[in-house]
């Protein structure tokens, strides 16, 4: 009788120990694994707008409006990025090339963006009736404009850089050429000297020969 009690106690105790260790490890792991990493960095435009709303000497309407436009612009940019990323991410998920975590974070980002867009339209309507319907149109134009501006700036920069590089390369080539020429000259000089010496030698030997010939002639 007593032995069966012992076995039961051991069994239950063992089970409890195993379960509790498991739950401990599980919880620790869960705590260690980072929460879903936000898809986008902090939305500074949103922060600016909110802090302007809460500013103590209240901000002017113009400031608020422009801040809201900035926020709409960020939304437009993000929406475009997400739309571009979506098919690519989808195909990668299907292939198993990326983890599900990324997909979750993507969906979350989409959701957040959706909410922000709604909020912006609502906010816009408070400034002016029906502005909410056009604010994103305006924001989109602004984003396009900024893009073009950036590209034209880049072209300028690129041109400057190319010119500089070209100059540098030209200088380097010149230096190398000069060195090369020097070497070539030195080589030529050497060869000339050598030739001269040889010539001298030849002359001398000819002279000797001539003398010999003369001597022979004399003897004759």
């Amino acid at each position: 009788m007593s032995s069966s009690w012992v076995v039961t106690v051991i069994y239950v105790g063992g089970m409890l120990i195993v379960m509790s260790t498991f739950s401990y490890i599980w919880r620790r792991r869960k705590a260690a694994s980072a929460p879903i990493v936000p898809w986008f960095p902090d939305n500074t435009a949103l922060d600016t707008y909110i802090s302007l709303l809460q500013a103590d000497p209240p901000a002017t309407e113009l400031q608020l409006k422009s801040a809201l436009l900035r926020r709409a612009m960020t939304d437009v940019e993000r929406a475009m990025k997400l739309r571009e990323d979506r098919p690519a991410l989808h195909s990668l998920i299907q292939k198993g090339a990326v983890g599900d975590e990324l997909w979750n974070s993507f969906l979350q980002a989409e959701q957040e963006l959706q909410n922000d867009i709604m909020e912006v339209t609502r906010e816009a309507d408070t400034f002016k009736k029906d502005w909410g319907q056009t604010i994103f149109h305006t924001a989109n134009e602004m984003v396009q404009h900024e893009k073009h501006k950036k590209i034209s700036d880049q072209i300028k920069e690129l041109k400057d850089k190319e010119e500089r590089d070209f100059k540098k390369r030209g200088e380097r080539e010149k230096i190398e050429e000069a060195e090369n020429e020097k070497r070539e000259k030195a080589k030529l000089e050497k060869e000339r000297k050598k030739a001269e010496e040889e010539l001298l030698k030849m002359e001398e030997s000819e002279k000797k020969k001539g003398k010999d010939v003369k001597g022979k002639n004399k003897k004759k």
Partner: peptide, 12 residues
């Protein structure tokens, strides 16, 4: 790890 043997965080 992903199917291709790369860390998922790296791919992220």
């Amino acid at each position: 790890y992903t199917k291709d043997g790369i860390r998922t965080h790296t791919m992220d």
